[in-house]
Design a protein around this nucleic acid. Structure first.
Lengths: 193, 193
DNA sequence: CCTACCGATCGGTAGG
DNA sequence: CCTACCGATCGGTAGG
């Protein structure tokens, strides 16, 4: 059941789609207006600037990632389960907001200096949550004694690349199976010992 | 020993740096000229258009990736060694051309339609080379019977994310150690069995 | 939500 | 490699 979008919501969803396709800078307010079916000047009765759209997209995604990871943490005791649940939650946030996620990963560079530094510090905070869980797993003898930085980097690269190739309905596997494939590779590797 | 850059080479290296920082669309020919120390109009005695710069960056990187992977293949017999060498070669291409690599991964979207379809088909061809090696490893009982698509996806996401965080001189590990960490995670996973 | 419009900046060319 | 300049387009505002 599709709930009718308000004009403001429509501005965000159409922006996300265009920003994803063309990039933030190459998307004009006129092309946005055209897609919506109004004049460019009319957009400004709903939002204050082009940058505000980008801002709202980036920080609402950040909120979604934090909310998802917090829930995954409280719902799990065992470290491996916890990390798996965190990864699952992260991937779900991406595939449920695929255009916004692409903008989030691509276009945060175009935020104002102030917003950008807030953004990068939120991201560092988020990564730290994962890093703590990995380090907890190492202490408990569940995870190998690997360089934490590279484990985190590999983890996020795998998770975050999802937006590049995931296409709802096109990928044969559903989200659950997809997550299980990815975590399996990350947890156990591809080589038979 | 630094070899003096020709003006044309300088245009490419400064462009790569600016495209990486600001993105292709948000980089003006005037800011490029300013960085070089000439007038914007003077750039056009060395190159024909802004898009040609992007084109050359993207396709010279594609050439470098193909050359690297071909060498890795002929120099190795054993499948696991071969894949490891391919990954190493891939990462070296990235870290030796870090700005160009960032442009390659980010800004190919802004190529003309014609160049873009050539680009994506080259990329598919490249990925197929990896996929064949993975499938060879599965047949030989060296690699697990995992979904090949996800193995390739995880592999490239790990490799290609490198440009995001690698900073020459800043990352504590050298390239060789870095590659060994990443392949170790990908081959054997992070969990102790 | 529209018409009418602003100053700024864009990629690029002509001609030297 | 520069000066001088072009038409097009940009984000955004005033006023209704």
């Amino acid at each position: 059941m599709q709930v009718a979008e308000t004009r403001k919501e429509q501005i965000y969803s159409v922006s996300s789609k265009l920003f994803r396709e063309k990039g933030y800078s190459a998307t004009s307010m006129r092309s946005l207006a055209e897609q919506i079916g109004i004049e460019a000047a009319s957009i400004y009765s709903h939002i204050s600037s082009k940058e505000q759209i980008l801002n709202d997209i980036c920080f609402s995604m950040a909120d979604a990632f934090f909310a998802a990871v917090r829930q995954a943490i409280v719902e799990n005791e065992n470290v491996a389960d916890k990390l798996r649940a965190m990864m699952t939650a992260h991937i779900y946030v991406i595939i449920n907001n695929i255009d916004k996620a692409a903008v989030f990963f691509h276009d945060w560079r175009h935020l104002s200096e102030e917003a950008k530094s807030k953004f990068t510090s939120l991201r560092a905070e988020y990564e730290y949550i994962y890093r703590k869980v990995i380090s907890e797993g190492k202490e408990q003898g569940i995870f190998k004694q690997l360089n934490e930085k590279f484990v985190t980097l590999t983890l996020f690269s795998t998770l975050n690349w999802t937006y590049e190739w995931y296409k709802p309905g096109i990928t044969q596997l559903n989200a659950e199976e997809m997550v299980s494939e990815l975590t399996n590779i990350f947890f156990n590797g591809i080589v038979i010992n």
